[in-house]
């Protein structure tokens, strides 16, 4: 059995097994620390910094999704520094990213009374929707760079490595290598990335078309003709380089 560690979270002294993260330790006594980039089935990376907490004696705030408990740790999940930081981080996100399809983050913005127009002059991330395959679209204007899609595409699930970070600083975005269209990459269209996207930046194409006002029949037709075309062309004999 693992060693038990005693620590205090918001005044409650508890014991949890060694190696538990602060996030999970808090959860075990019903204290909910907000998270955005964290996902139970992905490697935690502490990117969004919304889950930061105050630990006595620490200069900086500590991301609870990755930080492990230690003996006699004094954790405050709602200190003034923590609340102010979370609020500002939410304001940073909302000032630069389209969060209209991220209900969880919008709720946090309400809860922390974050001001969506705190940075009125902020440059917004503007990206055209990438519609380069029949399965799903990528709308990076809505991307908060949680990195979950990259991780499930890589070592967290699929081992396909089709997407990664590109660019630097404010220009950072998720992309394929050399910005190639998805069908030209190692992508196998497994859809794991869509499953973990928290903001609607990755979306099945049908859902996107429906939102765009297409009727289900039209969509069926769209995909059917495409499918037909494909069978027709692949049925054609391809030997001897008989290209049209």
């Amino acid at each position: 059995m693992k060693k038990e560690i005693q620590l205090t979270i918001d005044g409650n002294t508890i014991q949890v097994p060694e190696g538990t993260t602060i996030l999970k330790a808090a959860e075990s006594i019903g204290i909910k620390i907000p998270t955005i980039c964290y996902h139970d089935y992905c490697t935690a990376n502490a990117l969004c910094r919304i889950c930061v907490v105050e630990i006595e004696g620490s200069r900086t705030l500590i991301p609870s999704c990755v930080a492990k408990v230690s003996s006699d740790m004094q954790v405050k999940t709602k200190s003034e520094r923590v609340i102010k930081s979370r609020k500002t981080i939410l304001e940073m996100l909302v000032s630069s990213i389209d969060l209209s399809e991220s209900p969880e983050i919008l709720n946090m913005i309400d809860e922390y009374e974050a001001n969506p127009s705190r940075f009125p002059d902020a440059e917004r991330r503007e990206h055209a929707v990438i519609d380069d395959n029949p399965m799903f679209i990528r709308d990076y204007e809505k991307c908060i760079l949680c990195w979950r899609c990259v991780q499930v595409c890589a070592e967290d699930a699929q081992y396909t490595f089709a997407i990664n970070f590109s660019g630097r600083g404010y220009e950072t975005q998720i992309n394929t290598f050399y910005e190639k269209p998805l069908p030209e990459t190692s992508c196998v269209f497994c859809g794991q990335c869509i499953g973990v996207c928290p903001t609607g930046a990755l979306k099945p194409k049908r859902e996107w078309l429906l939102q765009d006002g297409y009727q289900p029949e039209e969509i069926m037709l769209l995909t059917r003709t495409q499918r037909k075309k494909k069978t027709k062309s692949s049925a054609r004999p391809s030997s001897g380089g008989s290209h049209e």
Binding site: L93, E171, T172
Partner: peptide
């Protein structure tokens, strides 16, 4: 560009 405060904060 990995974490929010640095990516957006320095830009702001």
């Amino acid at each position: 560009g990995k974490c929010t405060p640095c990516r957006v904060g320095t830009h702001s």
